[in-house]
Design a protein around this nucleic acid. Structure first.
Length: 848
RNA sequence: GCCGGAGUGGCGGAAUUGGCAGACGCGCUGGACUCAAAAUCCAGUGAACCGCGAGGUUCGUGUCGGUUCGACCCCGACCUUCGGCACCA
């Protein structure tokens, strides 16, 4: 049987896809006695066809999973769908297709595409978050959190997206805009469900040391910034003319307490109404509040907005020196941060300085860089220095002063050391239909009652009017809302908000360990075996969303004793985005290349090869059509080379070849190499093969540099071509050709699945190439025997020579000094020094 | 403003521990094959200068300094750019 002369990717890929499906070759699970490895890519929202970013994500994971599997690991490499969420619901409003139907259709499309790209998933173990057998357990987790006191309903100023008609968590607000639709977010005071992630702020921070090795620094930095820890003190300021009211403030600079000349409440602060008595002031405050409430969060958050405010007519007492301090309100003080009130120190805080200058409030210097008083400050000094005008603390360094003042406050019950976090509690309720219902019932008699576990899941009703009205669509669904109280059996109503989809995605990786178990959310035995995830892969845009929530979830479960590990993802790799023309691919811009266009035209192998070769996996890449052509060209080149090599053996089957070696060509070639029986080009080829195995293995598993792994394979192919061109057929070492060709196919196989398999089978192998163990390399063969020694004079390259490895320094020196080119630069000059780095270079230092 | 990345040919990018800058690919140029073209194969390809030529010299990794026998790599200052946080007290 003759091998096909031409590479026909679509033909072989379609054929093999069917074959693999029949042989169930997609799963990489082996045996529980093997070491386990859990490779996980962030699961997608099923939007129909996967986009190029998805493809990049899954291809990277696939290569790692496949190589490790071939190295003897038992691999969990699952896929699922994060299928609750707004797009399906918005589509339903737009064109009437029920989210359930459109979701199923999208999942089908997506699954088909993933199979077409050859990703090695256990497709039978999919997790679909919008299925009741999944969201039942999402609700179960809610109840767990509720019982642990970590889920609470509270009134708070929350982010409202008017376009999505729902509230959003802080993490979903990106510079004042909705993460999903980019419309401006407003503040509304509403009663909402929160998970108390703030209880875990410090733990989320501390446990990052467990991630330092496996997570990129920039991701940890994003999380650190987001958690926003700052140390300082809470200081209580008593309200003047009042016995019992005192207002705490948070400050990072207790050492500046003597410099307080005014005091500010956030305009929304609830105390304002209580303490302002004078009608004059009430009117003025009303005016200011009006102006401020007219400013959007984006405006108010922007750097250069003018500071405005007014005096309230009331005073507080500075606890340190007993001075009366006027209370103002001002737009630059935020209710959400700290206590919603600040002590203003205009001499040492630029914002306070600007405000004080505008309204003629005194500025009192209490920290001096040189210990002296300065007449007029032109700006706030916020650096360290020496405390002045600070009573008994004067003369102390500001650094020590922070501690001393705090201790003094603590001793006198006026305040305490305090750590403040920017992190807010996680708002999880949403006023939308397509999510997991929150399992809570409101009884007229018993009040708030959790749904008993045995009644889960609280099913989403199917027939519903999706049009958003500011309340959940479920609110208008009587048969859903009206229920009986689980406690007293009396009339009761269900909670109608659904959960943020980030709740669903905070535990899906646990579900993958036992996806079909209907008794528990996850089987502990399986989770103990598989978790934590060894390698997590996905977009960095989730650094301060999904990746924080999932870490929080795991810590809660750890505290509850349900799991034995503190972090869900040991290693995390953020892949870069795929751009086109320097811009993010997006439907609205119309600059989209879909993976399907590429695999339909060039084949999945070309897509896979190109997307890995185009650049380092963690940096953004720009799509290039000529780059795709190049990848395709390379595969054609491989095809022709291998077909020729197979034919060389006199038959399309290696096994029938007339070579002198039949059983273990790898070993025989090694012997020939070591016994010096190969020609120099053959030695080079053999060495190149072993070097390539080494490089490809390390690049994939250690460095995550798929682009350089592929370029190494290209170099091997180039050398194989050289051998093919330069040596006449009768003189070729067929055993060597066979050995190098087969290893080449194995090295290619995790990248370009189909072509590797097709040629492998054509060469007469019975077993799939994807079940063949990953090759080892021989150190002795991989090692170069000659190295280029560089001759430098004063650090400049002047000559080079190839010498055997391990040539002693004196000999290198002799060669260097006898080099004509070196002599040109040393003649007539005094040689001061000679530095020899064995196997690398010699540097001769001369004086002019 | 604070924190964290990044900056290398015409382009995407290599250089793994301070030791040959530009691997590999794209593009381009030339050659082979062809009636011709495509495809393919081979060779060349950082810049400037010198030489008829073989060859040679100088410059060159954002900028300016420093450390070192030697710096894309380490240190200092700055510029540009991307990302995170941001009237955060």
């Amino acid at each position: 049987m003759a091998v096909h002369k031409f590479y026909k990717p679509r033909e072989i890929e379609e054929k093999l896809t069917k074959k693999w499906e029949k042989e169930k070759i997609y799963s990489l699970k082996s045996d529980k006695n093997d070491p386990k490895y859990y490779v996980l890519e962030m699961f997608p929202y099923p939007s129909g066809e996967p986009h190029m970013g998805h493809a990049r994500n899954y291809i990277i994971g696939d290569v790692i999973a496949r190589v490790l599997s071939r190295k003897g690991y038992n691999i969990l490499h699952p896929i699922g769908f994060d299928s609750f969420g707004l797009p399906a619901e918005n589509a339903a409003i737009r064109d009437g297709m029920h989210p359930k139907e459109s979701t199923i259709a999208s999942i089908d499309k997506m699954r088909k595409a993933l199979k077409r790209m050859g990703i090695s998933y256990d497709f039978g173990d999919e997790v679909i978050t919008s299925n009741p057998d999944y969201y039942k357990w999402t609700q179960w987790f809610f109840l767990l959190f509720y019982r642990m006191g970590l889920a609470e309903k509270k009134e708070a100023a929350v982010n409202w997206c008017n376009s999505c008609q729902t509230v959003l968590a802080n993490e979903q607000v990106i510079s004042g805009r909705c993460e999903r639709c980019e419309s401006p977010v407003e503040k509304r005071v509403l009663s909402q469900w929160f998970f108390k992630i703030t209880d875990y702020a410090q733990r989320l921070l501390d446990d990052m040391k467990l991630l330092e090795k496996g997570w990129p620094e920039r991701v940890l930095t994003i999380q650190r910034n987001w958690i926003g820890r700052s140390e300082g003190a809470v200081v209580d300021f008593k309200l003047d003319d009042s016995e019992d009211i005192s207002i705490p403030v948070f400050t990072t600079r207790p050492d500046t307490l003597f410099g307080v000349t005014f005091f500010i409440l956030a305009p929304e602060h609830p105390l304002i109404d209580k303490i302002v008595v004078d009608e004059e002031y009430k009117k003025e405050i009303g005016k200011i509040k009006n102006i401020i409430s007219g400013q959007s969060d984006i405006e108010r958050g922007s750097a250069e907005i003018e500071k405005i405010g007014c005096f309230t007519g009331r005073y507080v007492i500075n606890p340190l020196n007993g001075q009366k301090v006027p209370i103002w309100i001002a737009n630059y003080v935020l209710l959400e941060y700290g206590t919603g009130a600040i002590m203003a120190v205009p001499a040492h805080d630029q914002r306070d300085f600007e405000f004080a200058s505008k309204y003629g409030i005194p500025i009192k210097e209490v920290i001096s860089p040189d210990g002296k008083n300065h007449q007029k400050l032109s700006a706030a000094y916020d650096g360290e220095g020496i405390m002045i005008n600070s009573g008994k603390f004067s003369g102390t360094s500001s650094e020590k002063g922070k501690k001393d003042v705090t201790s003094y406050l603590e001793e006198n019950n006026m305040g305490k050391f305090y750590v403040n976090y920017k992190l807010r509690d996680w708002l999880i309720s949403r006023q939308r239909y397509w999510g997991a219902p929150i399992p809570i019932i409101y009884c007229e008699k018993c009040g708030m009652v959790p749904v008993p576990e045995e009644d889960l899941p609280v099913l989403l009703p199917y027939d519903i009017d999706f049009r958003p009205k500011g309340l959940s669509p479920l609110f208008y669904c009587d048969e859903f809302v009206n229920t009986a109280c689980p406690g007293c059996g009396g009339k009761a109503k269900r909670e109608t908000d659904t959960m943020d989809t980030f709740v669903c995605s905070s535990w899906y990786f646990l579900r993958y360990c036992s996806p079909h178990n209907d008794k528990v959310a996850f089987d502990s035995k399986e989770v103990d075996y598989w978790m934590p995830v060894d390698q997590y892969i996905g977009g960095i845009e989730h650094a301060a969303m999904h990746l924080i929530y999932a870490r929080f979830f795991i810590k809660v479960l750890y505290d509850k004793g349900l799991i034995k590990f503190k972090e869900p993802f040991i290693k995390y790799f953020p892949h870069g985005v795929v751009n086109l023309g320097g811009q993010k691919m997006s439907k609205s811009k119309g600059n989209i290349v879909n993976p399907s266009e590429i695999y339909n035209r060039y084949g999945a192998d070309t897509l896979r090869l190109y997307i890995l070769f185009v650049g380092p996996a963690d940096s953004p890449v720009d799509w290039s059509d000529s780059g795709v052509e190049g990848a395709s060209r390379f595969l054609n080149r491989v095809w022709r080379l291998v077909v020729k090599n197979i034919e060389l053996a006199g038959s399309s089957k290696w096994a029938n070849s007339k070579t002198k070696v039949l059983k273990d060509p790898g070993k025989d070639i090694k012997d020939e190499f070591k016994n010096g029986k190969l020609s120099s080009l053959e030695r080079e080829l053999c060495r190149k093969l072993h070097q390539t195995i080494k490089k490809v293995t390390e690049d994939i598993l250690v460095r995550f540099n798929f682009n350089t792994a592929i370029s190494a394979i290209m170099e091997l192919v180039n050398l194989m071509y050289k051998y093919q061109e330069e040596v006449t057929a009768s003189k070729k070492n067929v055993a060597l050709v066979k050995e190098v060709t087969e290893k080449l196919l194995i090295l290619l196989s995790p990248f370009t699945l189909f072509i590797a398999e097709e040629l492998w089978l054509e060469a007469g192998n019975e077993r799939s190439i994807h079940k063949v163990p990953w090759p080892d390399y021989d150190h002795e063969i991989a090692r170069e025997e000659l190295v280029t020694i560089v001759f430098q004079v004063n650090g400049k390259l002047r000559d080079r020579i190839d010498l055997p490895i391990g040539t002693p320094p004196e000999e290198i020196e002799r060669y260097a000094l006898s080099s004509r080119k070196v002599k040109n630069f040393t003649q007539g000059k005094e040689i001061v020094k000679k530095i020899v780095v064995p196997n690398k270079l010699i540097n001769i230092v001369v004086k002019n």
